[in-house]
Amino acid sequence: MDDKIDPLPDAGVNRILGLLEIIDDRGGREDIYRIAHELDYEFGDLLAVVKAAELLGFLTTPGGDALLLPLGKQVIDGDANVKKAIFKRQLEQVALINRIIEFLAQREGRSADKEEILAELSRLLPQEDPEKVFTTLLNWGRYAELFGYDPDEDRFYIDQM
């Protein structure tokens, strides 16, 4: 199965959680434009957060609204470990992350240095800025305890714990 590889939207975990929270506060469905307006949030930035939450299966976007899915509700109701477990399960469904896991899995020590990951990201997503993708990959990966990165050793690895 060779599914299409999409880039990761430039949105951190805290923002995704914040977005789910605010949609839940509004009864599970809210107009995206209205959220941007009320929070005085840059619309492009908000869209990246919406896309990220959608990619992870936490919400859908029928007709310009953001609609919270049951999984998204589980994320905000769960404690830290539940949140992380759901993030991890969902991240494993994302094509790009799968490729990185495969890339790491066939290497000795299931790890690579940052340059090697950046090279792999440029190969998979030639149109994107690999540094940016790496930042999101690391942010999500660390949160979900899927990837780890030791900056002192410059070692990006699959989190076994």
Partner: peptide, 16 residues
């Protein structure tokens, strides 16, 4: 909720 970030330095992290 920071399990997994133990070895990170603050400069690698977002404000949140």
């Amino acid at each position: 909720g920071l399990e997994g970030y133990e070895e990170a330095y603050p400069r690698e992290l977002s404000g949140g």
